[in-house]
Design a protein around this nucleic acid. Structure first.
Lengths: 192, 192
DNA sequence: TCATAATTACGATACTGTATCGTATCTATA
DNA sequence: TATAGATACGATACAGTATCGTAATTATGA
């Protein structure tokens, strides 16, 4: 039952390599500086090899973003504060990886020209991270640890956003930052 | 005491127009998509007129960012919570202006190639806004309204950053968002 | 006083060199 | 023998410069 198509088959490794390189260059240089010549060279293929798989530069870039998954160690410290702190610390680590913030910058900058990038970035990275935090908070709420009227949406945005804002202020987020943030949020939402 | 140089003087309007157009295109298209041909056309000048004033595209872009000043209505509601809420609401309004977030994106995306953009952006926009919030909090602290051990740095980052994070999640920040955020922060930092 | 020279800004245009997207054409391989 | 892949190419866009004629202003000399 070999339903093998005629002709030379594609190397399945090639696709992965191209996508990996494309994502790295997208993060390092931004969308418009990323060139297909450079992606091809770094992946060890030629441009037509890329174009046979993706129809355009934008198509390749979105495919590269699509490969992103939030893949972080599961956090479970047994306490709400511990889980929140661990999650924010994971987040800080991922942002501090080389060009972690530049990738966010480029999808934001391209919102007007290639909105698909931002859409996929939200779907693959932003939403899962928010969900992680939200789940922690919802379970705490179920256990009656929280004031019933607080906005979990705002709390999640604060936990994540504080890191963005801190980076935008100086690119160097101090080690105790996660704890400081969670300390304030927790004091702000917990039942007295 | 006219130390006017001989020759035709530069039209002071021209410089303004070029910078205004450059800033708009920078926000709309990002740094690498912004072209001097297009800036020249939109400003009604020729390219040499631009190059007579700035030595390069990067020079023009940084000059355009340099013109940015945080120029927001002075907030004074007579209460710490009111002042914080008003400041965050101002911030939301300025981010929601067309391409407000794209400009942030482009300076972040260009950090690796044109770091001057991010440096100036921090100096002219980020730092003043943080200072506004910090001053509000420091005065509250002086009046004994705050717990003495809270990190004002974290509190400021949360107030500003929540808006970034919320935008990154959906581009639509709900109207009551500022109040929700301030409510949690305030409950988290105030003296009980 | 006033015509004119000197000087600088400016618009228009063309040009150079380079970068880059996407493709046409050829070769290698299953 | 159909398809993968590589080389080379066309087309285009853009940064930055050079040139030419003109406008605006100051300096100068009769």
């Amino acid at each position: 039952m070999e339903d093998r198509l005629p002709g030379r088959p594609r190397d399945p490794e090639t696709e992965r390599r191209i996508l990996d390189v494309a994502l790295a260059e997208l993060a390092r240089d931004g969308y418009s500086r990323m060139t297909l010549d450079s992606v091809a060279a770094a992946a060890g293929v030629s441009k037509p090899t890329i174009y046979r798989r993706w129809s355009s530069k934008a198509d390749l870039a979105t495919a590269a973003i699509e490969t992103l998954r939030l893949l972080e160690p599961k956090v479970d410290h047994g306490s709400t504060v511990g889980d929140l702190t661990g999650t924010v610390e994971n987040f800080i680590r991922s942002l501090m990886r080389p060009n972690g913030m530049s990738l966010i910058g480029t999808v934001l900058a391209e919102e007007g020209h290639t909105p698909e990038l931002l859409r996929l970035f939200r779907e693959r990275l932003v939403a899962p991270r928010r969900q992680t935090l939200r789940t922690i908070l919802e379970q705490a709420k179920k256990r009656g640890e929280l004031r019933p009227d607080v906005s979990l949406d705002a709390a999640v945005a604060m936990l994540v956003g504080a890191v963005y804002a801190r980076y935008l202020a100086s690119s160097n987020v101090p080690p105790r930052f996660a704890r400081d943030v969670v300390e304030i949020v927790w004091a702000g939402i917990r039942k007295l």
